[in-house]
Computed example of a mutant assay.
Amino acid sequence: MSRRPTKTYSGPPSDHFDGEKFFDPDGVPPKSLREVLRWQFGGKRDRSVWPAWVPSPYADYPPAAVDGGKVRLSFVGHASWLIQAGGLNVLVDPVWSTRVSPVGWAGPKRHNDPGIAFDKLPKIDAVLVSHGHYDHLDITTLSRLAKNFAPRVITPLGNDLTMRERDGAIRAEAFDWHDRVELGGGIAVHLVPTRHWSARSLFDRNRALWASFVLETPAGKIYVVCDSGYGEGTHFRRVGEAHGPLRLAILPIGAYEPRWFMREQHMNPEDAVKALLDCGAEAALAHHHGTFQLTDEAIDAPAMALLEALDAANIPRERFLALKPGQVVEI
């Protein structure tokens, strides 16, 4: 991984910041380097081989804006979305790069194109970046967006330093858990705790905060969970209690094998179904699967396992959909 950033967050201690590093009072610390090496090199590893290229049959050409009481959600791929509502265009964890890695010549590589070609994007007003992992905070994409649209970039504490250190044109604004940010057009976003962690090198683990988002829209509240373990479901129940009713939840279902290593930081489809029930959202959309191979499961395993988990929980399959890049949902 890359070197430690020259600047890291500093601020007063809180219930999730000890003065040096962030932590989740209801979570567990990330795996150690020894455990990472055990996963990667410790004996026989049951790692599925993904096809080199799995194109989506869909491609979206979004309108310039969506007004009225409607919300349009376009799945770009992995954890990237375009959400259009109230005349605003909001991107979530935008990644248009070929690789999600500190270097351009190695690391997880795309297995399909973004569901929206970059030059087909409408004017982007705001960007939400959940945390610093490379498959969520992509400096190259953020720089392209800054050059073309100069959007506001809303992110948890410390990630703004990472962005501005690389490109001063990125208009990053950093906020803490439970902060509410007005975006305009009747749209606002809340940063809420999530069960995860953050790093961009071997030397800056948890020196920037991570978060999920609750987006207030004319069609109701949308709960966007970009990365999370399940734990006991505490985070999801609290969001449902504090921000419900939720019209929609966007929940991760991929990058979960092997479970001994990934359980605390990434949900599997069975966990995601429980998270849907815990937060009480009317419906859900799945993401964080099928674009970058970060872990050991097969490329189609999350979507197939989601159907099995929904059937086992007696939940209609249409309540929790796994889209392909380029597919669109309107509410």
Rank of each mutant, 00 (worst) to 15 (best):
K123N: 07
A85E: 01
K123W: 04
K70H: 10
G86A: 08
G87A: 11
G107V: 01
D67A: 14
P57H: 12
K123D: 11
K70N: 12
G69E: 14
H111Q: 09
L82C: 03
D125A: 03
H78R: 12
S48F: 05
A64L: 02
P114G: 11
V71H: 07
W105T: 11
Y61L: 10
A79W: 00
F75W: 13
V54T: 15
W96N: 05
D113H: 10
W50S: 05
A52Q: 15
P63A: 12
S56R: 04
L73P: 06
Y61N: 13
P63T: 07
W96R: 06
G86C: 03
A65T: 14
V92Y: 10
V100S: 12
P55F: 07
G104L: 11
D60F: 10
K109P: 00
G87V: 04
H78E: 14
R99W: 05
G69I: 00
Y58W: 09
P122G: 13
K123M: 04
L82I: 01
P122D: 14
I83S: 08
Q84A: 09
A64H: 02
R72C: 09
R99I: 06
R72W: 06
A65V: 09
S48P: 00
V90W: 00
P108I: 01
P114K: 10
L91I: 04
G115M: 02
A106H: 05
A126C: 09
P55Y: 08
S101C: 13
G68D: 09
V71R: 10
T98F: 02
H111M: 04
P102G: 14
Y61K: 15
P62E: 13
G104F: 08
G107A: 04
A59N: 07
N89S: 11
K70E: 15
K109S: 06
W96Y: 14
A64S: 10
A106W: 07
V66N: 05
V49I: 13
V66D: 08
W50C: 03
G77Q: 06
A65N: 09
V49F: 04
K123P: 06
L73A: 14
D113M: 08
S56L: 01
W96Q: 05
R72K: 13
P62R: 08
D113E: 14
L121Y: 03
P57I: 11
W105E: 09
G115K: 04
G68L: 02
I124N: 02
G77N: 06
V54L: 14
K123H: 15
P63F: 01
D67N: 15
P51I: 06
S97R: 05
V92L: 13
V103T: 13
L82S: 05
P55V: 08
L91H: 06
V76E: 01
S56I: 04
S48G: 07
G68S: 09
W105F: 08
L121M: 02
V92W: 00
L88R: 13
P102L: 07
D67C: 06
L91K: 07
K109N: 07
A59Q: 13
